[in-house]
């Protein structure tokens, strides 16, 4: 009896690894292996045609002390992340709350608001954006009705970042759908009880809605930060593909791409990738670390 049980366990073990085989191969060959590989390459000079030569920390030293494009692209990406992520989440929450208060044809509105998230990642929409924010584009036509003569948003280095941010905020629909599902989970008697206790709308929002939604907000925040750091297509298509005008669209990933696949300076690109990994890791860690002060799970007693 015992031997059969043991052989059953062994069989289950074998079968499990069989099922996991594709994933394990992928994990070693395409994820873990290349990760270590890029760490090694980041310590070398490597131009694809000649074998890599070991240069220690030189790439990193050059990046941090002697590369103004790196600094510029890092700040630009920070600016993009720190403006677009909060705006997108706030919009998503406000619209979700407006839709949640019982509205006819909710399905249609939800669809309409979701469509931008569906299509927004394509080259096609980036091209549309470039056109409607152009000097003679629709946005300026609209501003013209109010007597405002606006510049060409996409050719001015100070403004082009904002057209890219609008494209990101425009895609608030997916976060909104998640919030909408979260709002439906909040028991109505919480609001009723607080109303009897004399709480106003604003107080209800801060004391009930926000805390009850905090796990969903937390999840959305992490995923939005990670994704926004990696934004590429909008910068590439709305800009000129080389970071211009005047490096105003030189997002971090675009710089990495140009270094690695335009100049084939692959050791340098690998170093840039590792710096990006560490920055994203740090931000995720910060959000996780602060989460115990502002994320409340339903099963906790008296989350306040």
């Amino acid at each position: 009896m015992r031997t059969t049980r043991r052989s059953l366990a062994a069989e289950q073990n074998r079968t499990a690894y069989l099922f996991l085989l594709p994933w394990l191969i992928g994990f070693f060959m395409l994820t873990a292996g290349p990760m270590l590989g890029s760490l090694y390459l980041s310590l070398t000079e490597y131009k694809l045609l000649t074998p890599p030569t070991w240069i220690g920390l030189d790439n990193y030293i050059r990046i941090f002390t002697d590369d103004s494009t790196f600094t510029g692209s890092l700040w630009l990406t920070f600016k993009y992340v720190f403006i677009s992520v909060p705006l997108r989440l706030v919009f998503a929450l406000l619209v979700a709350m407006a839709l949640n208060r019982g509205i006819r044809a909710l399905g249609i509105y939800r669809t309409v608001y979701y469509v931008p998230s569906l299509l927004g990642g394509s080259v096609a929409i980036a091209i549309v954006w470039r056109q409607i924010f152009a000097g003679d584009g629709v946005v300026n036509d609209f501003l013209g009705w109010f007597g405002i003569t606006a510049p060409s948003w996409i050719s001015h280095p100070d403004y082009i970042i904002y057209t890219i941010i609008t494209l990101s905020v425009w895609q608030f629909g997916s976060a909104m759908v998640i919030f909408l599902a979260g709002l439906k989970q909040i028991p109505a008697d919480l609001y009723e009880a607080s109303q009897i206790d004399g709480a106003g709308k604003l107080r209800q929002f801060f004391r009930i809605t926000l805390p009850m939604l905090s796990p969903v907000i937390f999840f959305n925040l992490i995923m939005s930060i990670i994704n926004s750091f990696q934004a590429f297509t909008p910068a590439f298509v709305i800009g000129d593909g080389r970071g211009g005008p005047l490096d105003a669209t030189m997002f971090y990933t675009l710089y990495l791409y140009l270094k690695g696949f335009s100049f084939f300076d692959m050791g340098y690109a690998a170093a840039l990738a590792w710096i990006m990994l560490i920055i994203i890791g740090l931000f995720t860690a910060i959000v996780f670390a602060t989460s115990r002060y502002w994320v409340f799970y339903g099963d906790e007693k008296g989350g306040k």
Binding site: A9, Q12, N13, T15, A16, Y17, F19, L20, W23, L24, F27, L30, T31, A32, G33, P34, M35, G37, S38, L41, I222, I226, F229, Q230, T253, L256, G260, M266, A269, A270, A273, W274, M276, L277, I280, T284
Partner: peptide, 27 residues
């Protein structure tokens, strides 16, 4: 299924979800 190191592999799987594509791109 029950198998050896299942917790470890599951944790690895979770980590790869958050990994940016670019860090494996060059290799």
């Amino acid at each position: 299924l029950r198998f050896k190191f299942s917790k470890f592999w599951f944790a690895m799987m979770l980590v790869t979800i958050m990994l940016p594509y670019h860090v494996t791109l060059v290799p």
